[in-house]
Amino acid sequence: MHLRHGLARWWVLLGICAAAIAWLVVGGLASNIVYFRTASEAQADRVHDATHVFRLAGAVVPNSVQAVADGVDFQLTDGHVTIPVHHRGDPPELFRPGAPVVVEGHWDSPASSAFFASDRILIKHGSEYSPPPVPGQNAPANAGQANATQAARR
């Protein structure tokens, strides 16, 4: 008697777990936890965000990197929207044109022409691994670009 009772409850538990997983997947509840936002999303939420701190992801636009007195200026793009970024401090070692990065910071001012003031740069690495290319082909930058567009697509 007791045993059958217990067994029925285990089935109920299994059922609830299955329903929970289904709900999670179908309801798209997972979208809540976001480590970074893309340039397009950041642009769209600009008024709402004001000068709150958030993380912004994209690829460093080639030929846009300029060393300035207290850090580095560059443009960040997700393929649709490009945002000017001013970073205070030294960028990390793997920071280079075309690299996929996540910058932590905030809009400098609520104005629509404001730049993004960053105080931390993280390199977002994709899940592809390959040996360095044969000299002559400029592949690392391309690989970086591919990662960046992949990152931006997410």
Binding site: L94, A99, H125, Y129, S130, P131, P132, P133, P140, N147
Partner: peptide, 8 residues
């Protein structure tokens, strides 16, 4: 044996 990664 394994080569170093292109980016990292």
């Amino acid at each position: 044996v394994a080569p170093p990664d292109a980016v990292q």
